[in-house]
Write a protein that binds this DNA or RNA. Sequence first.
DNA 1: GGAATCACTTGACAAAAGGCAAGAAATACT
DNA 2: AGTATTTCTTGCCTTTTGTCAAGTGATTCC
Lengths: 197, 197
Amino acid sequence: MTALEQMDNRESLTNFILNVVKIPKRDAEEITASFHPIELKEKEFLLKENVVSDDYLYLESGLMRIFLYGLDGEEITIDFFTENNIVFEITSFFNRVPSEAYIQAITTCTGYRISYDELNAHFHNKPAFRDFGRAILVKEFIASQRRNYGMINRTAKERYQNLLTTKPQIIQYAPLKYIASYLGVTDSTLSRLRKKM
Amino acid sequence: MTALEQMDNRESLTNFILNVVKIPKRDAEEITASFHPIELKEKEFLLKENVVSDDYLYLESGLMRIFLYGLDGEEITIDFFTENNIVFEITSFFNRVPSEAYIQAITTCTGYRISYDELNAHFHNKPAFRDFGRAILVKEFIASQRRNYGMINRTAKERYQNLLTTKPQIIQYAPLKYIASYLGVTDSTLSRLRKKM
DNA sequence: GGAATCACTTGACAAAAGGCAAGAAATACT
DNA sequence: AGTATTTCTTGCCTTTTGTCAAGTGATTCC
């Protein structure tokens, strides 16, 4: 038994599933069982540019980010992933195309992953898995829309305060420049905003 | 035969489906056949606040918008829908909760709709429908992410120019104030931007 | 442990965008 | 046609944010 398997206590994933979709507990446990444990060290990558993503990950603990390179070669952090959430790059994973983005662990991360082929097989064979898959897509889609709505028509200060209340872990572990590009402001502006608060 | 059925030529929907997901033509035609024709007049609503949405709509022709009321009672246009796209309010439709948003026709619109129960039944019984349903969720999710990315880290001018090239119909038919709130700027600012171009 | 790099802060100025209010232009409504 | 309403534009001034550049502090790495 490896160290990874030793700490393999999947209750958190089962609970997450039951929280997202109304299915019997045994179905949730069956879904959980089809995932594989994975661990990432600080700064390690789950996905890099030009690779076709094959990871659909339940993040049990830790903090991650997805970013890409802008026109001037600067990193733009698109989103942060916090524990007890699903992590994937939808375009590359579902459309089977090379990724334009990087997914990176900010802190040490643990979780459970499943490949595209595995996920797809379950999706077609198991009604509960299908409901789970759709529920995740719907949940993340809604989160993306909310983010849109929360960014537009708000000042940088309001956006930062909102992040502070919704994902305080990020402020604690992510460097200022990640947060600044996520909020769409320069490092200087964010630094000044912080001083005023 | 009513006027609505007379003009019922569903090829555009079948082509749309075939464009979105790789399934046999007969399966696409079967999906198409499960939709019902619908027409909306200028300014008519497909969805209003506090109602549980029951429309998953393929917009064949016309222009629509989804909006909600901000804290000061002002309308905020969240998104525009152009022809040859699927229109739905994901939160209310899939989670079966009262909508916070309005969906309104900007011009006269025609299309084909299906209810939640109908969609769900097909989703579980027909593999092709399932693939179609997921492909639409993935497609719209990606579009939402792209919009996020296209809004942040860009000036109002760049955002407007981008809209101009990607959805020129909007500039033609939607009043300035809809576009301004969509871009996250005031009417005055957008008016000035236009003059400079 | 000292050089190099990285993360963050700060100052001075410039550009972008907003607030408010007045007015012009277009549209809707008898 | 003529009034009312809505839509859009414009001027003046303020606030927000960006740019550039220098400086401080922390961290990494031979």
